[in-house]
Amino acid sequence: MSTVVKIENLVKRYGDLVAIDHLNLEIQEGEVFGLLGPNGSGKSTTIHCLLALLQYNKGNISVFGQEIRPDSYDLKRDIGVIMQNVAVFEKLTVEENIDYFCGLYIKNKKKRKKLVDEAIEFVELNEFRKYYPKKLSGGLLRRLNIACGIAHKPKLIILDEPTVAVDPQSRNKILEGIKKLNEEGATIIYTSHYMEEIEQICTRIAIIDKGKVIALGTKEECKAMIKTGETITVDVPGLNGEQLKSIEGLPHFYKMEYENSILKVRFEKGKHNLIRLLDYLKEQDIDFGRVYSEVPSLNDVFLEITGKELRD
């Protein structure tokens, strides 16, 4: 596998604000690489620098082994971009929009026609070919937006939060489409603040906060970086201080929250944590309601490293 994107020591400042702080990334061919971080963490700025839309203060960015600059048109031929906002012409039909954006890469009319048809097929907009964008639903619009970015069959596809404000059904279709593009050979860079999406489709993840990579690897590798192994939530009213202290004494105990009768206990990696906690509650004759256990999520990774939730 060869390196498709290499970002070294990238620094981007907006006046005194450091948006990207010595960021390093290496993305391999065939990966679905996820950039996860809260709003304002620097994901989009990184993408803009990668696309040479922004001038950066320091660092190097290379794509397919070559430094990318605003006039790197040969490199740009192999890159497809799908931005956060839907970028299509309202006065052109679905087919005309895809044809226009594909035309910015492919001059041959016959070849372009074939690619446009394939893109329409891919995003399942066949029956909406002659529709104007304002007649399409939010989900269909997003699919059109994707079709405009991938029609020229790029080797590297960059998707910047493509599922913002999309209904669950359309979101699933979009995610399935991205997986399919990857299966067809494209390398994907996917930015989102939805950790579920990242977990669902990405083979490797970089979690970004304040312009820095705070965790990098597969989702398992990222989760292995933190202490939390399991979070158990119990609906239990009226626990007193002594009882809470006893729970803290359970084996593998890591952290605990108790608010509005909801007890949330984080355990380090280890077995039988749930049984031990429930046994204790039964021993103390404490009534409890709903109980559930969760394995660590990327949110837990982010929470443990930064002390704040991903969606803060």
Binding site: L53, Y73, K76, N85, A87, C148
Partner: peptide, 13 residues
């Protein structure tokens, strides 16, 4: 947004 998409393309500005 359209301009960004056009600037990212392989056709020079």
């Amino acid at each position: 947004d359209i301009k960004k998409r056009c600037v990212c393309s392989s056709m020079s500005l």
